[in-house]
Every structure is written in C-alpha cells, then in structure tokens.
Design a protein around this nucleic acid. Sequence first.
DNA 1: TCTTAGCACTCACACCTATAGAGTGCTAAC
DNA 2: GTTAGCACTCTATAGGTGTGAGTGCTAAGA
Lengths: 343, 343
Amino acid sequence: MLTERQLLILKVTVDDYIQSAQPVGSNQLSKKSEIPFSPATIRNEMADLEGLGFLEKTHTSSGRVPSEKGYRYYVDHMLTPRPLPKEDIVQLRSIFDDKIAETEEVIKRSAMILSELTNYTAILLGPDVRKHTVKKLSIVPLTMDTAVAIIVTDNGHVENRVFTIPQGLDPSDIEKMVNILNERLVGVSLNDLHRRLEQETLTIFKQHVNRYGELFSTFRKAVILPHEDNVYYGGKLNILNQPDFHDLHKIRNLMDVMEESKHIPMILPVGSQGLHIRIGSENALSAMEDCSVITVSYDIGEEQTGSIAIVGPKRMDYKRVVTLLDTLSGDLSKELTRMIRGK
Amino acid sequence: MLTERQLLILKVTVDDYIQSAQPVGSNQLSKKSEIPFSPATIRNEMADLEGLGFLEKTHTSSGRVPSEKGYRYYVDHMLTPRPLPKEDIVQLRSIFDDKIAETEEVIKRSAMILSELTNYTAILLGPDVRKHTVKKLSIVPLTMDTAVAIIVTDNGHVENRVFTIPQGLDPSDIEKMVNILNERLVGVSLNDLHRRLEQETLTIFKQHVNRYGELFSTFRKAVILPHEDNVYYGGKLNILNQPDFHDLHKIRNLMDVMEESKHIPMILPVGSQGLHIRIGSENALSAMEDCSVITVSYDIGEEQTGSIAIVGPKRMDYKRVVTLLDTLSGDLSKELTRMIRGK
DNA sequence: TCTTAGCACTCACACCTATAGAGTGCTAAC
DNA sequence: GTTAGCACTCTATAGGTGTGAGTGCTAAGA
C-alpha cells in the first residue's frame, strides 16, 4: 500500500513526464509548488516507488520514467475527472453544427475532430452494418449483360454492386425477382439477409422466374456482404508527430497494423461496453506494445453500438483523452439516437 | 554534346546509384564489365560530367551522385525500353483475373498491385465522375422527415445522400418529382445535372408539385456533387521504406500533401496525354522536391480518361516503372473499354 | 524517527582527436 | 589519349575527456 506522499510523487511524476517526455528528476520535482519536500526525500520515495515497480530508470543516473505498472496505477486511481475546457466543448459540438443527416458523415467528422483535439490517431467504428435492415432493394440494368444491385438500409446507407446478368435472361424476370425480393425481404437485417434469401425466396423463384438458379446465385453473390467495414480514421499521420516514436521501422509496422482491417477487432473490442484503457503490452498486437489505446463505446438507439479508439504513445494525456471520449461518446449516442428516432 | 564514353559513364553511374543508393566512385565503376577504362580515365570523365552539371558530389572526396539534370538526361536519352519480366506481367494480369464488373474495383486493385510491384506509392485517378450520365434517379424515404436520394450512373456507380424532407410535404409529391426527374434527366451527365435540373425541371415542378420550391432546393443540395473524388492509393506507406527519406518532418509533409485532395491535380495533371516524368524540383509542390513522379493516362472508350502516378525518390527505378506504367495503361484502357462496351 | 544537507559516484551527451578508408585531382610516364 | 602513382580531402568510426544532471548513501538536524 502506498503512502500519501508516494501517491503524490507518483502522480506528479507521471503528469510531468506526460507533459515533457523527459525523465523526471528529484530536483525538478522539488521545485514544483505542490511538492513541499526536499530533493533527498523525493529521491528516497522514488527509490521505493522504483522498488515497487511503479517507476523505472532509463540508466543508472537518469531521472525516473513511469513503468507500465505506474501508468496502470495512475489511470486506475488518479484520474480525477476534470471538466472539459470550453474551447474543446465548442469544437466537439461543431461536429453536429451543420445538421448532417447521415450517421456515417457524423462519425467521419468525429474521427477528424477527435484527432485534431488530441493530436493522436482516432479510429471510429460505426454501428454494425449487418444489423441494419433492408429498406429497399432494386436492380438497375446498365448494359446488355450487366446490372447493379442496390440495397438501401434503414439508416440511409446504400450498398451497391455490379454483377453480370446470366446470358439470355428475360428482363421481365429481373423485374419479377426484384418485386418478390422487396415483398419478402424489406425489414430483414443484412445479417439475416443471406439466410432469408434462401429460405423464403428460393421456392418462390422456382415458381415464378425462369432460369431462377443462375439469377439467384448471381444475385446472392452480389449481395453477400458490404464492400468495406465502416471504420473511419482521423489523424493517421499524427503518429509521426510523437517524439516517442522515432524508429521508422516500428512506425511503419504500427501504421500497417492500424490500416489492416483484420486487426481492427483487436484494437476496438466490439462487444465491450464503457471505457477501457490498454497500456503498452496490454495490447493484443505486438506492433502496439509502445502504444496506449483508449476505447469507448457509444449507442444508437437500443440496438446498435459503435466504438471509438484513440491510439497514442504510452505517455498519452490520459486525463484529457478520457474526458474527451466520455463527452463525445455521450454526445454521439444522444445525437445519433435522435437522428434515427425520426422513424 | 557528350562523347560516347561520357554517355556510357553517365548511364552506368545513374544505374548504379539507382540500385545501390550509394555515391558511385571511379574504382567501383572500373570494375564493371561494361566499363573497360581505368579509374583515372573515369575520374577525368566524371569531372567533366560534373562540370557539365550532370553529376554532383556530396562532399569533396565522395563518389558522384546524379544531379537533377543528370536524371533528366538519363530519362530523356537512355531509357531503352526492355520487355517486362514474365513474373511482372503475370502480376499485372492478375488485376483482371476474377472478372470484376466494376471500374472502380479494377482501379483500386491496380493501385494496390502497382505499389507492390514498384515498392513506391501509386495514385490512380478514375475517370471524371462528372462525365458519367444518369441512368436512374430515385428517392427512398427513410423516416418521417428524411429520405435518401440515389443516383445510378451508366457505369454502375451509385451516389447517394440523405436529406431532410421539408415538413408536411406530401409523399405523392415526392413520387411525382422522381418520375419527372427520371423522364427528363436520364442520360444527362453529372456535370450538366445541376444546370439541367434548373432549366428543364423547375417549370414543370411548379405545375405539378405543391411546395416545389423547398423540395427542389433540398434535392438540389443533395445532388450537387459526389462525396469523394475517385482517387485510389496503393502503398501509401512505401515511402517509409525508402532509404532516401529519413527526415520524419519531410515524410510527414509529403504524406500530408499526397492525401490532401486539393493537391491531387498538381500531382496528376488531368488533361495531359501519355507518359510524363517529373524529377525533383520539376514538381509543382515543394513538399515533393525530393521525389520523382511518373504519370501516364489511360482511356476508357473515346470519352473518358483516367491517370496513374507513381511517386518515389528521385533515385527511382525509372526504366522499370516506365515499362510497368506503359503496360498497365494499355491493359487498363483495353479492359475498361471492353467493360463499358457491353452497352 | 523523519527529513534534509552534503558528497561521492555514475552515466549520457557533447566535444574533441586520431586513424582508416574511400575517393578525388593532378602530374608524369607510357 | 590513357593510366599509374601520389598527395590530398573528407567521412566515418572509435577512443578519450569534461560537464551536468541525476543518483544513493551517510550523517547531522528537527
């Protein structure tokens, strides 16, 4: 158990290091107004803190730097929430300024502004596309043998894919098919679409549409899943600004990992609620062992959720980022829910 | 006018430097089988070439490095086209392997593969969206007061935007409007859409639709222009691999510039035909003064054109990149034209 | 007993110096 | 015209020195 004084010194050390990126020495600390002890006393305490694993030295006679355990203790016990500065609130609010009607657009803007406010990289995950339900299906013929399949979802998202029409197929068949699809599939979630497509429509097609097989399988392929995940980035290049990152090779790895969509679930754990902080090696990806990641979820209505991540150095301004994310997640939940409530 | 021997030495120097990234010395050159002269002779020639401005020294007693003028001469006079190695051709062909039906998808893939083949950054510009013509317009209501406007173009591209329906507007009005729009605007290019919208449909709306004004202006806003330009990147991070770039600050600038869409016209001159090479300070953007950019255009049918750029260090493998771009631009033109010919 | 002044010690960093090596230009011989 | 030889220049590397910021420890003071 740490003494009152050790707590104070740990806190101030972490704060100072976060701010300066330089190892913190006893002399330096003793000059601060909130520290009324002499350098020698501080040295003793710091030695203890090092013994307990909260601080580290970069070399024998350097100042101290927080260890991962130190950061962990800091974020677990010392994050007294401050109110967000006025100018930050103004900036955050500006996301909703011009009343945009699209969820995606709002999220995209959030990513940008969040990265500007923090100088770190922001990754936002929109609500799971597959939870959206079909509002309308249509097929628009383009050429003799191609057409584009369009799915409009309840949130205004539009998926489309061009596909090849099986040779010699009657245009009226296509029309029939679209009608059947709309009768049967409006309101179905994209997630279930695939299954329902087979269950409900296959038999009907057989009755009504000639050469149903080819058309069906072609269409199914076209509809299977969205082209891209709905991941939005802000400030991808902010990593290059951090003095903590100088090794080009590591930077390249990190940036690679972040863009690779298959790693996204490792960075933004989709299911989890609330705010989470992962420090250094607590991250699942080894490329991120020098990073800290703060994630938070937000809700749209009762069903849909999205998440936000901020990726920065371990020496991240936790206090500020946590407050920002708390506020933003609340705002996003509120505004986005309001947007879909128009139903 | 350069002598035969000077030409040879210049060429071999540039080739060697492109390959090794190290200043080239007279001893090194004399060892090459294609160079039958002694180091001393080479030194004399190199001194001359330096005097003429084709070579430079990094310091008094270093080997030589090509100057921009040297590269310029090299690309203007010494790019004897070689046939592309087999494995490259295979890779390039793989772009068209699974017969994708969408232009955008093909271009996206080209960007990726091109960057993999070159280890530089590839930027591809698709055909001007505004030249595409409207195939179908529709409006799908989402909630009480929002709807999504959808424009399908002749190439299968789908633009969509959510907008707010003016309060108390009759749903039948919307339907009427969509019908009128489709009657009048199918076949119109996106570029003219805005103008034609006013010219042709405004008066008709007045007759048929109540409260035409609000609806019209809302719709117009929704339709004005596509969300994003059709720029596709491959290997954005390849810059980080180049030994020529070590200054983090410069890298950041360069990457910033390349992603900023307003700079794209400076990198990919939209109008120009054929292949162009810009070396170092020949580039319009100062952030690219350490880069060379090779651009080439490709055609889709008779009307549409797109362009390709490769951004790399001045010490770029010009020969290889030129051959690759030549081939790819031909392939793309052929395949994409074939795709739209299905009309 | 806790705190702090004092002091010897350590180490990174900046600076200088010496040396090796790769390259040059010039001169003179071939 | 070509090339061997040589003095010269400059970088890069390694080793040596001094300074300063920091430490741990000890002993005196509160």
